[in-house]
Design a protein around this nucleic acid. Structure first.
Length: 759
DNA sequence: TACTAAGCTCTTTTT
DNA sequence: GAGCTTAGTA
């Protein structure tokens, strides 16, 4: 113990030794936060605290795993009994044990956002609500937001302010949809990600004995990345810590980047007012980065209004300046970055794994991937489509889910006709309809399929399917997860079906399927943890797994990921791509101080990942909607003190930002300087002109009308409005017309399908 | 009911 | 440029 205390600086040591009472540790980037947390827990165990009474909550499985390993290396295998994991996984564990109190089965399904969205889509369809106005993603966002603020569907529906808002945006039915969504999840025995938090809160507020049990169990609580907790998480933590008050939160307000997920920086900014006897420790020495990086990033974050005072410093070497690369488009940007990696590797003799390319949006990864492939630089990409989101994987996992939880509606919908067994959309729609009408789950309707005359045609097929699923359920009693999964893969014909497709994509789908089966095998054979090797436990594991978690740190590859995904990681050399106004900062954050400040924190996170050197790159034009649009350099480039920059000589000198603008809340915010936004360079606005209403008589467009079409004629298109035919080429069905539309410019249309009318 | 081709609509970030 | 929906065909 004394040995490792020697490795700590003063504030770190104090933070470790202050084990009693509420503690807040403000830890700047690279200040040894994980080390402090690790030693704090190790110290508690050394003092004789039972690991069983310590809970440590993190945001990612990876952070939890890393911390567990490090604690284990200090205190040994005793660390295994710690309650350590993500909010979602720890709460899921508690919920499974107490599920019956909430009327849920202990083997409840966890819906991922795809499932949630799909459920919302079918609810909209059943309620005959227009999904153009009620966009599923947006509805899910509203529901998620409500849940994170502890607002249930019932409360949502009776809240006048919320209703007034929804009505004013033309969506008065939102409360109703939320209610139906809540009921359907319950009937399906499913919880979405937000439910894992909300239901935990409900559990401990509605059942005092449960609260009491966990309050006494968790004598010492620790929360990592506290700046990213939302209101619901805060309330749970507060309640659980109420008895012992030994709550330690660790975070950095400057790295709060998840407000879109309901995280509120308020939690960390006002933690002090929650506990009068709070001890605050500030870790301000950065051990990770060079002086250039520390000072440049510190200069950036200084522009934010919402922040706690701290002075991050380092005694590391000065280091290289930040290099700015200017490219004409995204492909050239990719080439520049790949080439720079190649050169740095040679010059500094670094492995591939020393490099990370970070970007604002997942869509930006393509050009970097292509360029790296061309130079034969191995890379690994996170985000985008994860393994468990692939269709073939989700389909198979749906079988497993359905076997465990027959009521899982989303799983059932996925596979009832996959592989095709003659149960078409009409039949499925009817099943859902009857389920709703009779207040039954989807599965229960299937059980009684013969009671509905309209379903008679498909009845035997449906029954066969149900019997098959039930037979799998029987096998569960005698077989482990792997044996059962392998059997299902064969019995359903899925494995064979995938193996028959010899296209490149088909082969990859088959390989993925095999990889999944191997994964289940590994799960069964893995004896490093004591949990039973049941299918339930396997599903529980993968439901909360993200692809950042299956990182193989030994592979020597360049890392590509979003900035959000990079939180908590570090790399010797970091590339930040797409440093363009409207992309980073995102267009959506402009004109609102708080959102712009979050973008700035995001930039801060990106910069502080680097140990030795940073490259910033931007393109002067980029494809959006298949159109090449001109881009201007990001205002963030402007905010970096020039003394830290190694600017490409073509990089224009910027004029200072004006700060005398204010948004509707009266907050001032900076606007891009004039040189960024000259009228000629301004990107085309994204809002498309509204289509003029069509006269009654021409509502139905008949493709045949175009047979007499000639160059120079005026036409009207259903979507593009009025225009003039410029050119006609080809013959027969492939006849094409180039039409110049008043509002959309030139479009090429295949006349066989064009919805045109002569004017 | 199943399959295919054309049309339409997006673009933040994720446990 | 991709994923999803719609319309048309077998």
């Amino acid at each position: 113990m004394e040995n490792y205390l020697k490795q700590l600086n003063d504030p770190q040591k104090q933070a470790v030794l202050q084990t009693e009472g509420p503690v807040m540790i403000i830890a700047g980037a690279g200040s040894g936060k994980t080390r402090v947390l690790t030693y704090r827990i190790a110290n508690l165990i050394r003092k004789g605290v039972d690991p069983f009474n310590i809970i440590a909550l993190t945001f990612t499985n990876k952070a939890a795993k890393e911390m567990r390993n490090r604690i284990e290396s200090v205190v040994g295998h005793e660390a295994r009994n710690l309650w350590m994991g993500t909010f979602h996984s720890i709460f899921a564990k508690i919920l499974r044990m107490e599920a019956d109190k909430l009327g849920y089965p202990s083997h409840f399904t966890i819906y991922d956002s795809d499932d949630s969205k799909s459920l919302i889509k079918s609810i909209l369809k059943e309620m005959q609500i227009d999904d153009k106005i009620y966009k599923p993603g947006m509805i899910l966002g509203r529901i998620s937001n409500a849940k994170n603020n502890l607002i249930t569907a019932g409360m949502y529906q009776t809240d006048e302010e919320v209703n007034a808002y929804d009505s004013s945006t033309g969506r008065p039915e939102l409360g109703k949809i939320y209610k139906v969504y809540e009921e359907r999840c319950f009937k399906a025995g499913a919880m979405d990600f937000d439910d894992l938090l909300l239901k935990t809160y409900q559990l401990i507020t509605k059942f005092p004995d449960v609260l009491n049990k966990y309050q006494h169990k968790f004598k010492y609580m620790m929360v990592d990345e506290y700046q990213d907790t939302n209101h619901c998480q805060f309330m749970i933590i507060k309640k659980l810590a109420a008895v012992h008050q030994n709550i330690c939160v660790v975070g950095d307000d400057a790295q709060s980047i998840y407000s879109f997920r309901g995280a509120t920086i308020k939690n960390i900014l006002s933690f002090e007012s929650e506990y009068s006897d709070l001890k605050i420790f500030k870790l301000e020495q950065n051990y990770r980065s060079t002086q250039v990086i520390v000072n440049a990033s510190g200069g950036i974050i200084k522009n934010n209004k919402d922040q706690l005072q701290k002075k991050v410093w380092t005694s590391n070497a000065t280091g290289d300046k930040i290099k700015v690369l200017k490219a004409i488009n995204d492909n050239e940007e990719g080439r520049f970055v790949a080439q720079a990696i190649f050169d740095e590797k040679m010059e500094k003799q670094l492995p591939n794994s020393a490099f990370a390319i970070l970007y604002r949006t997942n869509a930006q990864s393509r050009s970097f991937e292509e360029a790296l492939r061309k130079l034969n630089v191995p890379y690994r990409i996170f985000g985008g489509m994860s393994f468990y989101q692939r269709k073939e994987i989700k389909d198979f996992v749906a079988y497993l889910r359905l076997v465990i939880n027959n009521n899982d509606e989303e799983a059932l919908k996925r596979i009832i006709n996959y592989p095709v067994r003659g149960i078409g959309q009409t039949t499925i729609d009817r099943l859902i309809l009857y389920a709703g009408q009779n207040n039954l789950s989807f599965w229960e309707v299937i059980q009684r399929v013969r009671e509905y005359p309209e379903l008679r045609a498909a009845a035997s097929k449906i029954t066969d399917f149900a019997i098959m699923i039930q037979s799998f359920g029987e096998l569960r009693k005698t077989h482990n997860a792997y044996e059962l999964a392998a059997y299902i893969a064969k019995a359903t014909g899925l494995l064979k079906f995938l193996n028959e497709d010899k296209t490149i994509e088909g082969i990859s789908r088959y390989e993925n399927m095999v990889a999944l089966l191997n994964g289940i095998k590994e799960f069964v054979e893995d004896d490093t943890n004591e949990q039973e090797k049941t299918l339930e436990n396997y599903l529980q594991d993968i439901a909360l797994l993200t692809d950042t978690d299956k990182d193989d740190p030994n592979a020597d590859k360049v890392t590509l990921m979003t900035i959000h995904g990079s939180k908590g990681l570090e790399f010797p050399v970091v590339f930040i791509g797409g440093m363009e106004e409207n992309l980073f900062p995102s267009q959506m954050s402009l004109g609102n101080r708080k959102e712009l400040e979050e973008e700035r924190r995001l930039f801060y996170v990106a910069l502080t990942r680097a140990e030795l050197k940073i490259y910033l790159s931007y393109a002067t034009s980029r494809f959006k909607f298949g159109t090449l649009l001109p881009c201007e350099p990001s205002r963030f480039l402007d905010e970096i003190d020039k003394e830290f920059l190694d600017i490409d000589r073509r990089f224009a000198t910027a004029t200072p930002l004006s700060t005398n603008n204010s948004d509707k809340n009266g907050d001032t915010y900076s606007k891009p300087s004039a040189w960024m936004k000259t009228a000629a360079n301004k990107p085309a606005p994204f809002t498309k002109p509204a289509l003029k209403p069509l006269p009654q008589a021409i509502e139905n467009f008949v493709p045949d009308n175009t047979s007499g079409l000639k160059e120079g004629m005026n036409v009207e298109h259903q979507r593009f409005g009025l225009g003039m035919v410029k050119k006609i080429e080809g013959d027969g069905d492939s006849r094409k017309a180039t039409v110049l539309f008043n509002e959309y410019g030139e479009k090429q249309l295949v006349l066989k399908f064009a919805k045109l009318r002569l004017v």
